[in-house]
Design a protein around this nucleic acid. Structure first.
Length: 208
DNA sequence: CACCAGGCAAGTA
DNA sequence: TACTTGCATGGT
């Protein structure tokens, strides 16, 4: 994938907070719609811990409208912001200095933060050695015949931890590359458009 | 028009 | 545990 697509330089976001916000907004949502929402937050000067803590939830929902599920996502953003203040006095630095296990456990207790969102925050905002699993990961590896398509999150994640070197850059890049591959060449309805990996997988691309 | 997008929680059995 | 449903916009 790296040979075909090159380095991905993830996450697309200028700050840890922007990455956290993006991780919530992109839940089951196209990234292009998320970017519009994030641009609105920037334009309104509300992409900061303090401003997000103070903004009215309905007003926030209006600003993130383009990302879909805006009412529920506005609440979820409030939940994670409140968590950062109540648990870490509003310091991301404190939050990121928690141990991996503690932080993941606590994030999963926040309503609206599930495993993928928690792991995305851990890997891409906190730069911890965490491998993110998403719908593309399951689709790609089940099409390759490695696992069933509805394999549980923690089970497929364990496969990566078992078989990959425990390396931050590798985890970071591997997930980003799978999103690229999935988006462009491994759709739900198999459609073959010249996947660049053709010929690399023992001569056969089984992804489409 | 149908389908899809970097999920999650809450309800039911 | 194993389903099912609601949440919603915007691009193809």
């Amino acid at each position: 994938m790296h040979q075909a697509f090159g380095p991905q330089d993830w996450w697309p976001g200028d700050s840890p907070l922007e990455i956290i916000v993006g991780a919530v907004l992109t839940q089951n949502t196209n990234w292009a719609n998320v970017e519009k929402a994030i641009n609105n937050l920037k334009k309104e000067k509300v992409l900061s811990l303090k401003a997000l803590k103070e903004i009215n939830t309905n007003k926030l929902a209006g600003l993130i409208r383009s990302s879909g599920y805006y009412n529920i996502k506005a609440k979820r953003l409030k939940n994670i912001i409140n968590f950062i203040f109540s648990e870490y006095r509003g310091s991301l630095k404190k939050m990121f200095s928690e141990s991996d296990e503690e932080l993941r456990k606590k994030l999963l207790c926040v309503n609206g933060i599930g495993r993928e969102t928690a792991d995305s925050i851990m890997c891409y905002a906190a730069q911890k050695k965490v491998f993110v699993v998403d719908a593309y990961t399951r689709r790609i590896f089940s099409r390759l015949g490695v696992c069933k398509k509805d394999i549980e999150y923690d089970v497929i994640q364990a496969l990566f931890y078992k078989h990959l070197k425990n390396d931050y850059q590798l985890f970071n890049e591997y997930h980003a590359l799978m999103v690229n591959l999935g988006k462009n060449y491994c759709k739900p309805k198999p459609l073959c458009h010249n996947c660049p990996l053709k010929g690399m997988l023992n001569g056969k691309c089984k992804l489409t």
